[in-house]
Nucleic acid binder design. Structure first.
Lengths: 199, 199
DNA sequence: GTCTATATTGCGATAGAC
DNA sequence: GTCTATCGCAATATAGAC
Protein backbone atom coordinates (compact mmCIF):
# COMPACT_ATOMS: atom_id res chain seq x y z
CA UNK A 1 0.00 0.00 0.00
CA UNK A 2 1.30 3.46 -0.87
CA UNK A 3 2.67 5.63 1.88
CA UNK A 4 0.01 7.34 3.99
CA UNK A 5 -2.64 5.59 1.98
CA UNK A 6 -2.77 3.21 4.89
CA UNK A 7 -3.21 6.02 7.39
CA UNK A 8 -5.99 7.57 5.33
CA UNK A 9 -7.78 4.25 4.98
CA UNK A 10 -7.62 3.64 8.73
CA UNK A 11 -9.11 7.07 9.38
CA UNK A 12 -11.88 6.42 6.87
CA UNK A 13 -12.87 3.02 8.25
CA UNK A 14 -12.37 4.22 11.82
CA UNK A 15 -14.78 7.08 11.22
CA UNK A 16 -17.49 4.77 9.97
CA UNK A 17 -17.07 2.06 12.59
CA UNK A 18 -16.63 4.36 15.60
CA UNK A 19 -19.69 6.31 14.45
CA UNK A 20 -21.77 3.17 14.08
CA UNK A 21 -20.76 1.41 17.28
CA UNK A 22 -18.79 3.77 19.47
CA UNK A 23 -15.24 3.58 20.80
CA UNK A 24 -15.84 0.41 22.80
CA UNK A 25 -17.94 -1.34 20.18
CA UNK A 26 -15.12 -1.67 17.68
CA UNK A 27 -12.01 -3.83 17.86
CA UNK A 28 -8.80 -2.85 16.13
CA UNK A 29 -8.75 -6.36 14.68
CA UNK A 30 -11.94 -5.78 12.73
CA UNK A 31 -11.02 -2.20 11.96
CA UNK A 32 -7.65 -2.97 10.45
CA UNK A 33 -9.08 -5.92 8.55
CA UNK A 34 -11.77 -3.76 6.94
CA UNK A 35 -9.15 -1.20 6.08
CA UNK A 36 -7.06 -3.89 4.42
CA UNK A 37 -4.12 -3.11 6.68
CA UNK A 38 -2.31 -4.90 9.44
CA UNK A 39 -3.39 -4.51 13.03
CA UNK A 40 -0.04 -3.02 14.00
CA UNK A 41 -0.55 -0.04 11.70
CA UNK A 42 -2.93 1.50 14.20
CA UNK A 43 -0.27 1.66 16.86
CA UNK A 44 2.29 2.79 14.29
CA UNK A 45 0.25 5.77 13.07
CA UNK A 46 -1.95 6.64 16.01
CA UNK A 47 -0.36 5.07 19.05
CA UNK A 48 -3.32 2.76 19.64
CA UNK A 49 -7.06 2.58 19.30
CA UNK A 50 -7.77 5.61 21.43
CA UNK A 51 -5.30 7.65 19.40
CA UNK A 52 -7.16 6.78 16.24
CA UNK A 53 -10.46 7.69 17.88
CA UNK A 54 -9.21 11.11 18.94
CA UNK A 55 -7.81 11.75 15.47
CA UNK A 56 -11.20 10.90 13.97
CA UNK A 57 -12.96 13.12 16.50
CA UNK A 58 -10.70 16.04 15.70
CA UNK A 59 -11.35 15.68 12.00
CA UNK A 60 -15.11 15.42 12.52
CA UNK A 61 -15.33 18.62 14.52
CA UNK A 62 -12.99 20.61 12.31
CA UNK A 63 -16.00 21.86 10.31
CA UNK A 64 -17.09 23.94 13.30
CA UNK A 65 -14.18 26.27 12.59
CA UNK A 66 -16.08 27.68 9.62
CA UNK A 67 -19.20 28.54 11.56
CA UNK A 68 -18.32 32.24 11.62
CA UNK A 69 -19.29 32.31 7.95
CA UNK A 70 -22.97 32.37 8.84
CA UNK A 71 -22.38 35.77 10.45
CA UNK A 72 -21.08 37.78 7.55
CA UNK A 73 -20.48 41.47 8.07
CA UNK A 74 -23.69 43.39 8.69
CA UNK A 75 -25.98 40.41 8.20
CA UNK A 76 -29.47 40.80 9.59
CA UNK A 77 -30.25 38.58 12.63
CA UNK A 78 -33.03 36.91 10.65
CA UNK A 79 -30.58 36.02 7.89
CA UNK A 80 -28.10 34.58 10.37
CA UNK A 81 -30.82 32.40 11.91
CA UNK A 82 -31.76 31.02 8.51
CA UNK A 83 -28.06 30.67 7.71
CA UNK A 84 -27.53 28.64 10.87
CA UNK A 85 -30.33 26.21 10.02
CA UNK A 86 -29.02 25.80 6.47
CA UNK A 87 -25.46 25.34 7.69
CA UNK A 88 -26.56 22.70 10.21
CA UNK A 89 -28.57 20.76 7.66
CA UNK A 90 -25.75 20.82 5.12
CA UNK A 91 -23.26 19.78 7.77
CA UNK A 92 -25.30 16.66 8.53
CA UNK A 93 -25.99 15.95 4.86
CA UNK A 94 -22.31 16.20 3.97
CA UNK A 95 -21.26 14.06 6.90
CA UNK A 96 -23.85 11.64 8.22
CA UNK A 97 -21.41 10.43 10.88
CA UNK A 98 -20.95 13.74 12.66
CA UNK A 99 -24.18 13.53 14.65
CA UNK A 100 -23.18 10.15 16.04
CA UNK A 101 -19.99 11.53 17.53
CA UNK A 102 -21.78 14.69 18.59
CA UNK A 103 -24.46 12.93 20.64
CA UNK A 104 -22.26 10.08 21.76
CA UNK A 105 -19.78 12.53 23.25
CA UNK A 106 -22.54 14.62 24.83
CA UNK A 107 -24.05 11.64 26.63
CA UNK A 108 -20.98 9.45 27.11
CA UNK A 109 -18.05 11.86 27.05
CA UNK A 110 -14.58 10.48 26.44
CA UNK A 111 -11.27 12.05 27.46
CA UNK A 112 -11.42 14.39 24.47
CA UNK A 113 -14.83 15.87 25.08
CA UNK A 114 -13.48 18.94 26.84
CA UNK A 115 -10.77 19.71 24.31
CA UNK A 116 -12.60 18.96 21.07
CA UNK A 117 -16.37 18.70 21.44
CA UNK A 118 -17.34 21.18 24.13
CA UNK A 119 -15.45 24.16 22.60
CA UNK A 120 -17.06 23.50 19.21
CA UNK A 121 -20.59 23.40 20.58
CA UNK A 122 -20.04 26.32 22.95
CA UNK A 123 -18.74 28.42 20.10
CA UNK A 124 -21.82 27.92 17.98
CA UNK A 125 -24.30 28.44 20.80
CA UNK A 126 -22.46 31.60 21.81
CA UNK A 127 -22.81 32.95 18.29
CA UNK A 128 -26.55 32.23 18.31
CA UNK A 129 -26.93 33.97 21.67
CA UNK A 130 -25.03 36.99 20.36
CA UNK A 131 -27.25 37.16 17.30
CA UNK A 132 -30.41 36.97 19.40
CA UNK A 133 -29.12 39.67 21.76
CA UNK A 134 -28.38 41.79 18.72
CA UNK A 135 -31.91 41.28 17.41
CA UNK A 136 -33.35 42.40 20.74
CA UNK A 137 -31.15 45.48 20.68
CA UNK A 138 -32.53 46.28 17.24
CA UNK A 139 -36.04 45.77 18.65
CA UNK A 140 -36.74 43.02 16.15
CA UNK A 141 -37.14 40.31 18.79
CA UNK A 142 -39.25 40.25 21.92
CA UNK A 143 -37.27 41.98 24.64
CA UNK A 144 -38.27 39.49 27.35
CA UNK A 145 -36.71 36.64 25.33
CA UNK A 146 -34.25 34.47 27.27
CA UNK A 147 -31.61 34.27 24.57
CA UNK A 148 -29.73 31.30 26.06
CA UNK A 149 -32.80 29.09 26.13
CA UNK A 150 -33.88 30.34 22.72
CA UNK A 151 -30.48 29.54 21.20
CA UNK A 152 -30.73 25.98 22.50
CA UNK A 153 -34.27 25.74 21.11
CA UNK A 154 -33.07 26.67 17.64
CA UNK A 155 -30.12 24.28 17.79
CA UNK A 156 -32.44 21.58 19.09
CA UNK A 157 -34.89 21.95 16.21
CA UNK A 158 -32.18 21.68 13.59
CA UNK A 159 -30.23 18.82 15.14
CA UNK A 160 -33.12 16.71 16.41
CA UNK A 161 -34.59 16.52 12.93
CA UNK A 162 -31.61 14.35 12.01
CA UNK A 163 -31.19 12.67 15.36
CA UNK A 164 -34.72 11.28 15.25
CA UNK A 165 -34.50 9.98 11.68
CA UNK A 166 -34.27 6.30 12.51
CA UNK A 167 -37.36 6.41 14.73
CA UNK A 168 -39.55 8.74 12.68
CA UNK A 169 -38.89 7.92 9.05
CA UNK A 170 -42.30 6.23 8.85
CA UNK A 171 -43.98 9.47 9.92
CA UNK A 172 -41.92 12.27 8.40
CA UNK A 173 -39.85 12.43 5.22
CA UNK A 174 -36.19 13.07 5.85
CA UNK A 175 -35.23 13.34 2.21
CA UNK A 176 -32.65 15.95 1.27
CA UNK A 177 -34.95 17.14 -1.51
CA UNK A 178 -37.09 18.97 1.03
CA UNK A 179 -34.21 20.69 2.80
CA UNK A 180 -34.83 24.20 1.46
CA UNK A 181 -38.49 23.84 2.34
CA UNK A 182 -37.53 22.62 5.80
CA UNK A 183 -35.21 25.58 6.31
CA UNK A 184 -38.05 27.95 5.48
CA UNK A 185 -40.42 26.15 7.82
CA UNK A 186 -38.04 26.00 10.76
CA UNK A 187 -37.04 29.63 10.32
CA UNK A 188 -40.73 30.53 10.25
CA UNK A 189 -41.57 28.48 13.35
CA UNK A 190 -38.69 29.94 15.30
CA UNK A 191 -39.41 33.52 14.33
CA UNK A 192 -43.21 33.61 13.88
CA UNK A 193 -44.39 30.54 15.73
CA UNK A 194 -47.19 28.29 14.59
CA UNK A 195 -50.19 30.44 15.47
CA UNK A 196 -52.51 31.59 12.68
CA UNK A 197 -52.94 35.04 14.18
CA UNK A 198 -51.08 37.05 16.85
CA UNK A 199 -52.36 36.36 20.36
CA UNK B 1 -28.60 -11.17 49.91
CA UNK B 2 -32.39 -11.44 50.07
CA UNK B 3 -34.25 -13.00 47.17
CA UNK B 4 -34.69 -10.69 44.17
CA UNK B 5 -32.72 -8.04 46.00
CA UNK B 6 -29.86 -9.23 43.87
CA UNK B 7 -31.86 -8.90 40.68
CA UNK B 8 -32.96 -5.38 41.62
CA UNK B 9 -29.43 -4.33 42.45
CA UNK B 10 -28.15 -5.62 39.12
CA UNK B 11 -30.82 -3.64 37.28
CA UNK B 12 -29.94 -0.52 39.24
CA UNK B 13 -26.20 -0.69 38.65
CA UNK B 14 -26.74 -1.86 35.08
CA UNK B 15 -28.89 1.17 34.38
CA UNK B 16 -26.21 3.55 35.60
CA UNK B 17 -23.27 1.86 33.93
CA UNK B 18 -24.94 1.15 30.58
CA UNK B 19 -26.15 4.74 30.50
CA UNK B 20 -22.72 6.10 31.24
CA UNK B 21 -20.67 3.92 28.92
CA UNK B 22 -22.99 1.98 26.65
CA UNK B 23 -23.52 -1.73 26.20
CA UNK B 24 -19.97 -2.39 25.02
CA UNK B 25 -18.28 -0.10 27.52
CA UNK B 26 -19.25 -2.16 30.56
CA UNK B 27 -18.05 -5.60 31.58
CA UNK B 28 -20.23 -7.95 33.59
CA UNK B 29 -17.27 -8.41 35.93
CA UNK B 30 -17.27 -4.76 36.95
CA UNK B 31 -21.05 -4.58 36.92
CA UNK B 32 -21.56 -7.52 39.26
CA UNK B 33 -18.80 -6.31 41.54
CA UNK B 34 -20.39 -2.87 41.93
CA UNK B 35 -23.72 -4.55 42.60
CA UNK B 36 -22.10 -6.65 45.29
CA UNK B 37 -23.20 -9.83 43.56
CA UNK B 38 -21.47 -12.66 41.82
CA UNK B 39 -20.81 -12.54 38.11
CA UNK B 40 -22.93 -15.62 37.50
CA UNK B 41 -26.05 -13.88 38.78
CA UNK B 42 -26.32 -11.96 35.51
CA UNK B 43 -26.68 -15.15 33.53
CA UNK B 44 -28.98 -16.59 36.16
CA UNK B 45 -31.46 -13.70 36.13
CA UNK B 46 -31.08 -12.25 32.66
CA UNK B 47 -29.43 -14.91 30.54
CA UNK B 48 -26.32 -12.80 29.99
CA UNK B 49 -25.15 -9.23 29.59
CA UNK B 50 -27.35 -8.47 26.62
CA UNK B 51 -30.38 -9.80 28.48
CA UNK B 52 -29.68 -7.39 31.32
CA UNK B 53 -29.29 -4.54 28.86
CA UNK B 54 -32.62 -5.26 27.20
CA UNK B 55 -34.34 -5.49 30.59
CA UNK B 56 -32.90 -2.10 31.51
CA UNK B 57 -33.98 -0.65 28.18
CA UNK B 58 -37.52 -1.93 28.61
CA UNK B 59 -37.76 -0.39 32.07
CA UNK B 60 -36.38 2.93 30.85
CA UNK B 61 -38.93 3.27 28.07
CA UNK B 62 -41.89 2.09 30.12
CA UNK B 63 -42.64 5.71 31.03
CA UNK B 64 -43.69 6.37 27.45
CA UNK B 65 -46.81 4.32 28.09
CA UNK B 66 -48.24 7.19 30.10
CA UNK B 67 -47.83 9.78 27.38
CA UNK B 68 -51.53 9.72 26.53
CA UNK B 69 -52.08 11.64 29.77
CA UNK B 70 -50.96 14.87 28.14
CA UNK B 71 -53.97 14.61 25.83
CA UNK B 72 -56.82 14.58 28.30
CA UNK B 73 -60.36 14.67 26.95
CA UNK B 74 -61.15 17.91 25.19
CA UNK B 75 -57.82 19.57 25.96
CA UNK B 76 -56.98 22.55 23.80
CA UNK B 77 -54.06 22.01 21.37
CA UNK B 78 -52.14 24.79 23.09
CA UNK B 79 -52.55 23.04 26.43
CA UNK B 80 -51.35 19.75 25.01
CA UNK B 81 -48.25 21.43 23.60
CA UNK B 82 -47.40 22.92 26.96
CA UNK B 83 -48.23 19.59 28.57
CA UNK B 84 -45.81 17.82 26.27
CA UNK B 85 -42.96 20.18 27.13
CA UNK B 86 -43.66 19.79 30.86
CA UNK B 87 -43.94 16.03 30.58
CA UNK B 88 -40.62 15.83 28.69
CA UNK B 89 -38.79 18.01 31.19
CA UNK B 90 -40.12 16.04 34.15
CA UNK B 91 -39.26 12.78 32.45
CA UNK B 92 -35.63 13.82 32.14
CA UNK B 93 -35.52 15.31 35.64
CA UNK B 94 -36.92 12.14 37.18
CA UNK B 95 -34.61 9.92 35.22
CA UNK B 96 -31.34 11.47 34.08
CA UNK B 97 -30.31 8.22 32.40
CA UNK B 98 -33.18 8.01 29.95
CA UNK B 99 -31.71 10.47 27.46
CA UNK B 100 -28.49 8.43 27.27
CA UNK B 101 -30.37 5.34 26.16
CA UNK B 102 -32.63 7.42 23.94
CA UNK B 103 -29.82 9.02 21.93
CA UNK B 104 -27.51 6.04 22.11
CA UNK B 105 -30.19 3.83 20.55
CA UNK B 106 -31.07 6.44 17.93
CA UNK B 107 -27.50 6.76 16.73
CA UNK B 108 -26.15 3.27 17.49
CA UNK B 109 -29.23 1.04 17.53
CA UNK B 110 -28.99 -2.35 19.20
CA UNK B 111 -31.16 -5.40 18.51
CA UNK B 112 -33.94 -3.97 20.69
CA UNK B 113 -34.28 -0.61 18.97
CA UNK B 114 -37.17 -1.69 16.78
CA UNK B 115 -39.14 -3.41 19.53
CA UNK B 116 -38.62 -0.96 22.40
CA UNK B 117 -37.27 2.41 21.33
CA UNK B 118 -38.79 3.12 17.94
CA UNK B 119 -42.40 2.39 18.97
CA UNK B 120 -42.06 4.67 21.99
CA UNK B 121 -40.72 7.60 19.99
CA UNK B 122 -43.12 7.06 17.10
CA UNK B 123 -46.06 7.04 19.49
CA UNK B 124 -45.20 10.39 20.97
CA UNK B 125 -44.43 12.06 17.65
CA UNK B 126 -47.68 10.73 16.24
CA UNK B 127 -49.59 12.30 19.11
CA UNK B 128 -47.90 15.65 18.49
CA UNK B 129 -48.74 15.47 14.80
CA UNK B 130 -52.37 14.67 15.63
CA UNK B 131 -52.57 17.63 17.97
CA UNK B 132 -51.09 19.99 15.41
CA UNK B 133 -53.50 18.71 12.73
CA UNK B 134 -56.31 19.28 15.19
CA UNK B 135 -55.14 22.85 15.81
CA UNK B 136 -55.13 23.54 12.08
CA UNK B 137 -58.65 22.14 11.76
CA UNK B 138 -59.73 24.52 14.52
CA UNK B 139 -58.02 27.34 12.57
CA UNK B 140 -55.76 28.07 15.52
CA UNK B 141 -52.54 27.19 13.68
CA UNK B 142 -51.28 28.32 10.31
CA UNK B 143 -52.88 26.09 7.69
CA UNK B 144 -49.69 25.78 5.60
CA UNK B 145 -47.85 24.27 8.58
CA UNK B 146 -46.08 20.97 7.86
CA UNK B 147 -47.17 19.17 11.01
CA UNK B 148 -44.58 16.38 10.81
CA UNK B 149 -41.65 18.78 10.69
CA UNK B 150 -43.25 20.97 13.33
CA UNK B 151 -43.73 18.03 15.69
CA UNK B 152 -40.03 17.16 15.37
CA UNK B 153 -39.16 20.80 15.99
CA UNK B 154 -41.08 20.80 19.26
CA UNK B 155 -39.59 17.50 20.39
CA UNK B 156 -36.16 18.77 19.40
CA UNK B 157 -36.45 21.91 21.50
CA UNK B 158 -37.46 20.01 24.61
CA UNK B 159 -34.97 17.16 24.32
CA UNK B 160 -31.96 19.10 23.09
CA UNK B 161 -32.11 21.37 26.11
CA UNK B 162 -31.06 18.35 28.18
CA UNK B 163 -28.89 16.72 25.56
CA UNK B 164 -26.67 19.78 25.31
CA UNK B 165 -26.24 20.26 29.04
CA UNK B 166 -22.67 19.05 29.32
CA UNK B 167 -21.48 21.38 26.55
CA UNK B 168 -23.51 24.48 27.39
CA UNK B 169 -23.66 24.66 31.18
CA UNK B 170 -21.21 27.57 31.09
CA UNK B 171 -23.59 29.54 28.88
CA UNK B 172 -27.08 28.59 30.00
CA UNK B 173 -28.45 27.53 33.37
CA UNK B 174 -29.90 24.04 33.35
CA UNK B 175 -31.16 24.18 36.92
CA UNK B 176 -34.52 22.54 37.62
CA UNK B 177 -35.61 25.70 39.44
CA UNK B 178 -36.21 27.41 36.12
CA UNK B 179 -38.23 24.59 34.59
CA UNK B 180 -41.65 26.27 34.79
CA UNK B 181 -40.15 29.41 33.29
CA UNK B 182 -38.53 27.31 30.56
CA UNK B 183 -41.84 25.62 29.76
CA UNK B 184 -43.49 29.01 29.32
CA UNK B 185 -40.65 30.23 27.10
CA UNK B 186 -40.53 27.17 24.88
CA UNK B 187 -44.30 27.10 24.52
CA UNK B 188 -44.17 30.79 23.59
CA UNK B 189 -41.39 30.32 21.04
CA UNK B 190 -43.13 27.39 19.40
CA UNK B 191 -46.51 29.09 19.21
CA UNK B 192 -45.66 32.78 18.83
CA UNK B 193 -42.05 32.77 17.67
CA UNK B 194 -39.42 35.25 18.74
CA UNK B 195 -40.46 38.29 16.71
CA UNK B 196 -41.50 41.43 18.54
CA UNK B 197 -44.30 42.16 16.09
CA UNK B 198 -46.12 40.14 13.41
CA UNK B 199 -44.37 40.24 10.02
C1' DG C 1 6.35 1.30 6.17
C1' DT C 2 4.20 -3.03 6.57
C1' DC C 3 3.88 -7.59 7.86
C1' DT C 4 3.43 -12.05 10.97
C1' DA C 5 3.68 -14.03 15.31
C1' DT C 6 3.15 -13.77 19.98
C1' DA C 7 2.71 -12.01 24.83
C1' DT C 8 -0.55 -10.66 28.11
C1' DT C 9 -4.66 -9.34 29.78
C1' DG C 10 -9.54 -9.30 30.18
C1' DC C 11 -13.86 -10.84 28.36
C1' DG C 12 -18.62 -13.64 28.72
C1' DA C 13 -20.43 -17.86 30.06
C1' DT C 14 -21.06 -21.93 32.85
C1' DA C 15 -20.17 -26.27 35.71
C1' DG C 16 -20.55 -27.75 40.07
C1' DA C 17 -20.29 -27.09 45.20
C1' DC C 18 -23.14 -25.43 48.89
C1' DG D 1 -30.28 -18.61 45.02
C1' DT D 2 -25.52 -17.64 45.31
C1' DC D 3 -20.82 -18.63 45.15
C1' DT D 4 -15.94 -20.01 43.33
C1' DA D 5 -13.20 -21.81 39.81
C1' DT D 6 -12.31 -22.37 35.26
C1' DC D 7 -12.89 -22.76 30.14
C1' DG D 8 -12.34 -20.87 25.68
C1' DC D 9 -11.96 -16.93 23.21
C1' DA D 10 -11.03 -12.15 21.80
C1' DA D 11 -9.00 -7.98 23.16
C1' DT D 12 -4.74 -4.54 22.68
C1' DA D 13 -0.17 -3.99 22.07
C1' DT D 14 4.43 -5.00 20.44
C1' DA D 15 8.78 -7.50 19.02
C1' DG D 16 11.19 -8.63 15.20
C1' DA D 17 11.53 -10.06 10.21
C1' DC D 18 11.47 -8.02 5.68
Amino acid sequence: MAKNDCRTKLMEIGTRLFAERGLHGVSIRELSQEAGASISMISYYFGGKEGLYSAVLQEQFACFDQIEEIRKQGAEPLDVIEGYIRWTLQRHRNNPYLLRFYTSELTNPTLWFHTIVQPAIEKIIRILIDVLDDGIRRQQFRKELHTGNAALALAGMANYFFLSTLATENLVSHSAENDEELIRQYAAIFTQGILASPP
